[in-house]
Design a protein around this nucleic acid. Structure first.
Lengths: 213, 213
DNA sequence: CCCGACCGAGCGATCGATCGGTCGGCCAGC
DNA sequence: GCTGGCCGACCGATCGATCGCTCGGTCGGG
């Protein structure tokens, strides 16, 4: 909303889906995210959230009307960020299915390696969302999954991918990319870019596409 | 059915790792498991747990000394069950790495399809375990992961698997099998056995092994 | 002199856990 | 065959602590 100081201009993210320099969340939400990661949503108290944000309890309520709204804001930001990056990656990829598979896989791995906390909460705190927000979140997740489904099914139709089970292979590829968020942390042996290259190869193997050179 | 042993004999589970007929948990823990699935550990109250078990609050405390001990008991049962089945599957498989990959994959998929609730809690409620129990749980998980790691690394050494990244492929295979618990439910289009056959093929593709006929 | 940002104090509700019981079945002694 | 004692299973009532949240302020910048 504010014109001057915001760093998270959605068009900026969409134009460079490989860039993770700009923080994805305002400070209060970032502090809440880290606390939710460690203790879970229901395991975190309002007082802990306020302390993590460097505020008193009423100070926190001045910015967000309820504990639930913090989680909702985090989940919405996570899904929107991944969605924008995915669309940008597919726009860059063009129409060839193999290249679309490569870039969407790269995008998924980069996101889950660079924003593991965001991805973790968005994936495993769905139960803590109240019904309305949960439905919206699930719809966003299904829409995201469909990006990969379309690619793998199309590739199988065109006999570019030889998998006998396109839908299951698609789910498996997305699952293994999503799983990166559970163990990767930025100081690891592999850089996110190197990791993404490995996963591009593994994704190709999983759907029965030729390996890159 | 079997010539020796009773149905409750734990060695029987180890001897028939494909059988999921006998309930894995006593009724109170089973009720607690379903409640944890729906609302998470911290989101569940002692009163809900007691009601789900058909008991009063003190009645529940008569069987388990604390809320935490219910979660610990569930996690321990889950890890022990999967571990016993995996050992039995590998014992049946013999020494050939391809067959070891096939049977361990089948075992993982069957478990995660037949016991999705157990697998889900064991995987995503680790944060809710107190430090001591959490360490033991993580050790059990690492030991379980190592079963697949050894197979894939050995297969790559023997040039039976052509994957350029044995360790990463192993993690990817386990991740995609584990992911089954997140979406499969027993009334689905595929039976657990059919699903396992698909995943055996996908696991082979992921590590670069020849597909089955 | 007003308004957005923020805080100390405290609200009612609910949390996990505990206390002092009740009740039915089992078993030894006679 | 009866009885007194005992124990595991279970419960109503309630504990102190803590929960999410709110009220009535303070205070500095415009």
């Amino acid at each position: 909303m504010s014109a001057s100081g915001t760093v998270d201009d959605p068009s900026e993210v969409a134009n460079d889906w490989r860039d993770f320099a700009t923080p994805p969340l305002p400070p209060i939400l970032q502090a809440a995210l880290m606390t939710f990661i460690e203790q879970g949503y229901h395991g975190t108290t309002i007082r802990q959230l306020a302390a993590a944000a460097g505020l008193s309890v009423p100070g926190l309520y001045h910015h967000y009307p309820a504990k639930q709204s913090l989680l909702v804001a985090i989940c919405e930001a996570a899904m929107a960020d991944l969605w924008d990056r995915s669309r940008a990656a597919l726009a860059e990829a063009g129409e060839e299915v193999l290249r679309r598979l490569d870039l969407l896989t790269e995008c998924l791995v980069l996101f889950h390696a660079q924003r593991p906390e965001l991805a973790f909460i968005a994936a495993y705190e769905i139960r803590s969302l109240q019904p309305e927000a949960r439905e919206a979140h699930i719809a966003a997740r299904d829409r995201q999954q469909r990006l990969m489904d379309d690619i793998v099914v199309t590739g199988a139709d065109q006999h570019v991918f030889t998998t006998p089970f396109p839908r299951e292979s698609s789910r498996a590829v997305v699952t293994m990319c999503t799983g990166v968020a559970q163990w990767y942390h930025p100081g690891g042996a592999l850089s996110p870019a190197e990791l993404a290259r490995q996963y591009v190869t593994m994704a190709r193997m999983s759907v029965g596409a030729p390996r890159p050179e």
